[in-house]
Design a binder for these strands. Sequence first.
DNA 1: GTCTATATTCGGATAGAC
DNA 2: GTCTATCCGAATATAGAC
Lengths: 206, 206
Amino acid sequence: MAEPATKDLILDTAERLFAERGFAAVSVRDITAAAGVNLAAVNYHFGSKDALMTALFVARVTPLNRERAKLLHEAEGRSGGVAKLEDILHALVAPPVRWWLGPDAALSVSVQFLMRAYAETTPGIRALLEQDVAHLQRFVLALARALPRLAHDEICWRLHFALGVMHYTVSERRRLQALSAGSCDLKNTESIIRRMVAFCAKGFQI
Amino acid sequence: MAEPATKDLILDTAERLFAERGFAAVSVRDITAAAGVNLAAVNYHFGSKDALMTALFVARVTPLNRERAKLLHEAEGRSGGVAKLEDILHALVAPPVRWWLGPDAALSVSVQFLMRAYAETTPGIRALLEQDVAHLQRFVLALARALPRLAHDEICWRLHFALGVMHYTVSERRRLQALSAGSCDLKNTESIIRRMVAFCAKGFQI
DNA sequence: GTCTATATTCGGATAGAC
DNA sequence: GTCTATCCGAATATAGAC
């Protein structure tokens, strides 16, 4: 039943290279050479370079969104159906930031890959992004319940801003460290999540 | 004295294609064909594809940063040397958002190109990014003067978050419109700037 | 400055032996 | 499933005529 080692090896290697350099800048030859597998293996197992990218995106985004949905669901359960603003934002950003800065290096690569995949959508991924918007609608609804006086478009704007905070922070780690001359500590994951949630929660007030 | 038409035509065409598809996904052939110039013209005028990208980045980022610095300087002049928080954030985001949503389509392409160039740094651009960090240091200093009780690393974190709000908003226009089902209006530039500044300013409080 | 033609390398994808 | 060998188009870059 075990997946062939080659297939997973290709997925992990492609993910790392895509995360580092982007989709178009990485060739199938780069991937197979780095993985130590045969050149033809990508087309055998996935059909094409594009299909590999799509399979990879699905494999990584699914558990991340599941974790977000779980945290949101738990937050709603804790407070009688209407989650608090901070808890909604926490459900949104904690999973990716924990993957990013947590002890598991593979998960860190995964979230960096995902942020890149969102930014440089290939044809195969563009089609999947509709489902991803559906996932975000849960957060729109939760925010509307938590902040009933805020108009729908205002909820969307601010959710978009909050997503920007998270995406950019994960993608532009180098830039933050250059800007702060290294004074911004990236070791304490939970305090970074708190800082990010606090920033966004204040932005949602009034 | 006038620049040769071909050179500027290449710059404008390359900018548009890079903004739409990214650097690696656009070939010199794509650029010269779309511009209606000879294939060899890119190498004649710029030396290489990478050098074209670098020249383009410099040509666009310079006036944008100059405008930001001017607004910051004016804000400091208006209030006796120490600019107010909202005015600092306004100087940071108003120029790119005005380029993005203003009446000049060429400037809109320019800011989309720039956001992509920051995200997918080529070797030539990476070297230039140090100067760009120096430009951002003015904003760190201004924020530190406006918020003397905030620690240096906290200033950097929140400035980074504010940059994320702007970068992601400009880059992920499609995603915002899909998320909000079109209810987020992108026509009123100044009200979008106010919304963005307000969100970030609240995030800086306390 | 602009063109054609070309050198040379690399790209994704596949056929067919094992 | 994995390998070698290869097809064939596309990539960057340049040489040399005009």
